[in-house]
């Protein structure tokens, strides 16, 4: 029972995998249906709902998890896999947070399963830096320069330990997918259905907080985020825009990070170059001649665009903004 509880909460662990193999997984229509639901929640809402922790449901959870992996492998979209991994990691994080109070040994077990050798210290945990670096966000809080590092180990707080585990879960799931296999017909069909939600998702994939990015810039950012290849001239225009819009080099480089041929060194060099040369933003008509203009927003220059002014006009005139 204890084992089952652990395994249904943390189905990505080796222990859970063994447990699932012991139980044996049937591909009932109910399991497939629940797996599809889990995938949809993950893709659309970015989270996965918890189920009641009663033995039958927990046993089924294991089957559902394994089925999710098959369906998403069959669908085989990098984008969906990415979103799914994020949602699974978030689900695990919720359990980690509650286990911290009631069953801290579960956290030790998950960490160990992921190969994260945390060592108990006086005021937190110690983690070797080579395990710390791959699983921490690039932020000032986690920046190694701001951390206590000695004898190869970084001191992390209790709550940070869970954050690091969450990221390790995400990476384990993402890097283990897709599974290459011939899937049964039911799985393939479910895979196709899941792929069906993709276009809708992609359209809203990059809901930018910066609402005042003009349509042409938004399109370039979306293409980059969707791993689409953006032509060189488009990248240059984007870099010039973002520099002029007042973003830092780091932030700009981050936008390019998803490009298929991303090179940190080259991108950084180019952005710095744009900044140093003080390039001016191309006008709308120049953007158009480069094939980068996507909407008649009449702002003259992308830098003049204001959602409140030009966005309304586009809407009023019924122009399509891609």
């Amino acid at each position: 029972m204890e084992d089952l509880l652990f395994c249904s909460r943390y189905p990505f662990t080796r222990k859970a995998k063994e447990c699932a193999e012991r139980i044996g997984i049937g591909l009932s229509s109910s399991v497939i249906e629940k797996a599809e639901k889990r995938l949809r929640e993950a893709a659309v809402e970015g989270r996965i709902r918890k189920v009641a922790e009663i033995p039958e449901a927990m046993r089924e959870e294991l089957a559902v998890y394994a089925t999710c992996r098959m369906i998403i492998s069959s669908a085989s979209s990098r984008y969906l896999i990415g979103r799914y991994a994020v949602a699974e990691a978030k689900r695990a994080r919720e359990y980690l947070d509650s286990d911290e109070l009631s069953k801290p040994e579960n956290i030790d077990a998950v960490a160990e399963d992921l190969g994260l050798a945390f060592e108990k210290a006086e005021d937190g945990f110690l983690l070797p830096f080579w395990l710390y670096l791959p699983f921490t966000p690039r932020s000032l809080d986690y920046k190694l320069s701001n951390r206590q590092l000695a004898a190869g180990k970084v001191l992390v707080k209790r709550s940070e330990r869970r954050r690091i585990i969450e990221e390790a879960v995400r990476i384990r799931i993402e890097s283990s997918l897709p599974i290459k296999a011939d899937f049964p017909k039911e799985i393939q069909e479910a895979g196709k259905r899941i792929l069906g939600i993709l276009p809708k998702l992609e359209a809203s994939a990059l809901r930018l907080d910066e609402r005042d990015y003009p349509p042409c810039i938004r399109k370039l950012l979306e293409d980059l985020a969707m791993n689409a290849n953006v032509p060189h001239i488009g990248r240059v225009a984007l870099a010039i825009y973002l520099v002029n819009a007042g973003l830092s080099d780091d932030k700009i480089v981050d936008f390019f990070r998803h490009a298929p041929d991303f090179s940190e060194k080259i991108t950084r060099y180019q952005v710095e170059h744009v900044r140093a040369k003080k390039y001016r933003m191309a006008s709308c008509s120049t953007m158009d001649s480069w094939g980068l203009c996507v909407a008649d927003c009449r702002c003259g220059n992308p830098l003049n665009y204001k959602e409140s002014v030009h966005g309304k006009r586009l809407k009023a005139e019924g122009k399509k903004v891609e």
Binding site: W130, L133, P134, L144, S145, E264
Partner: peptide
């Protein structure tokens, strides 16, 4: 270790972001 982890190591030594 990938590029970004290695850069973190170099940044630590240079005190970048400190």
């Amino acid at each position: 270790l990938d590029r970004s982890a290695r850069r973190e190591i170099a940044d630590y030594i240079a005190g970048t972001g400190l």
